[in-house]
């Protein structure tokens, strides 16, 4: 059978099935699980991760990795908070621009200096962290409550959290770019076989540069939402975000080697991992058992383990056939 379609279909539908089962479980078991308040808070909180994971998804599909997303988001939050007195637009643009700068730096180091993405983004992770702390003078930066900046993270439109709307819009655009533009196809081709893509005349360097720039900008945007949602730019936030994002992408069935991937399934992966925490909270609320919040990382890890083993079994079965 075909590796790509079978694998991606099964593992991407796998995440949807798991997500559906988890939601069903929560709906049957907890009274307020599908209540407006819970849904809205889950979406609001996970929007930041969704944005970061979207950028990561593109990077991974192109065969790379971006470890700098967490501290880039922190940098974005600091810049946005510093600029928030000038209004929502300036704050947002500033935060995104800061993220974009880190993304561009990643792209340049990887494409121009030909340094492994892993090590390049590890370095920029440090650089972004240092810059964020410098700008924030080693403390969190309160945002201005005068203007509309805080609405971005805390406001709703028709009861839907604004961050969720931003994330959904980003995913729709991302999906269109991936499936209906030459650049999107080039991302997958480069991840599938970079040498061949080069020989095919695809602008490999430009596309690789673009995915890192995109990942940086989306991380910056996530940082803007972070600042707005929690009322402060937080220079030391974002630790471990990169691995959460990678886990979401992998759980969503995107091959870590690049070349196969789905934007929608990544969103499902983010929600799945996010809901585990939520379910844990409800379970503790029932009072039957008391699981500390720390179990969430154990359960997330086990989830990732299950998906990864499943993927490897699938692919080894195919190569044996």
């Amino acid at each position: 059978m075909k590796k790509s379609s079978l694998l991606s279909a099964l593992s991407s539908q796998g995440v949807l099935i798991a997500l559906a089962l988890l939601i069903l479980f929560g709906w049957l078991r907890y009274e307020h699980f599908l209540g407006l308040f819970n849904i809205s808070s889950v979406l609001r909180y996970n929007s930041m991760f969704a944005l970061v994971a979207l950028g990561m998804c593109f990077v991974i599909m192109a065969g790379g990795i971006d470890l700098s997303v967490g501290s880039t988001a922190a940098l974005g939050s600091v810049v946005a908070a510093l600029l928030s007195p000038h209004g929502m637009l300036i704050g947002t643009l500033g935060g995104v621009a800061a993220g974009l700068c880190i993304g561009i730096l990643n792209g340049l180091v990887i494409v121009r200096m030909r340094i492994l993405p892993f090590i390049a983004t590890l370095a920029t992770m440090l650089a972004a962290n240092g810059s964020a702390l410098l700008l924030a003078q080693d403390q969190s930066v309160s945002v201005s409550y005068d203007g509309t900046f805080v609405d971005l993270g805390q406001g709703d439109i028709y009861n839907i959290p604004i961050p969720a709307l931003i994330a959904v819009a980003a995913y729709i655009i991302g999906s269109i770019v991936l499936n209906y533009t030459g650049t999107g196809r080039a991302v997958l081709a480069i991840g599938g076989n970079e040498d061949a893509s080069r020989l095919m005349g695809l602008p490999v360097d430009r596309v690789k540069f673009l995915v890192y720039a995109l990942s940086g900008a989306l991380s910056g945007l996530a940082g803007v939402i972070l600042a707005s949602q929690f009322g402060a730019g937080q220079p030391i936030e974002g630790v471990g975000w990169e691995l959460f994002a990678i886990a979401s992408v992998v759980v969503g069935g995107t091959l870590l080697t690049g070349g196969v991937g789905s934007v929608g399934a990544t969103l499902a992966g983010v929600l799945l991992l996010g809901l585990i925490f939520n379910v844990l909270n409800f379970e503790n609320g029932l009072g039957w058992i008391s699981l500390s919040a720390y179990w969430q990382s154990v359960i997330r890890g086990l989830f990732l383990l299950g998906v990864v083993i499943l993927q490897s079994r699938l692919s080894s079965k195919q190569s044996a056939a």
């Binding site: 590796k3 030459g182 070349g259």
Partner: peptide, 17 residues
């Protein structure tokens, strides 16, 4: 030198879609 996981169509048309 083609891209293994992509369709025949993509492999033929990549770069001049």
């Amino acid at each position: 030198n083609l891209v293994p996981y992509r369709s025949i169509t993509e492999n033929i048309c990549l770069g001049r879609e």
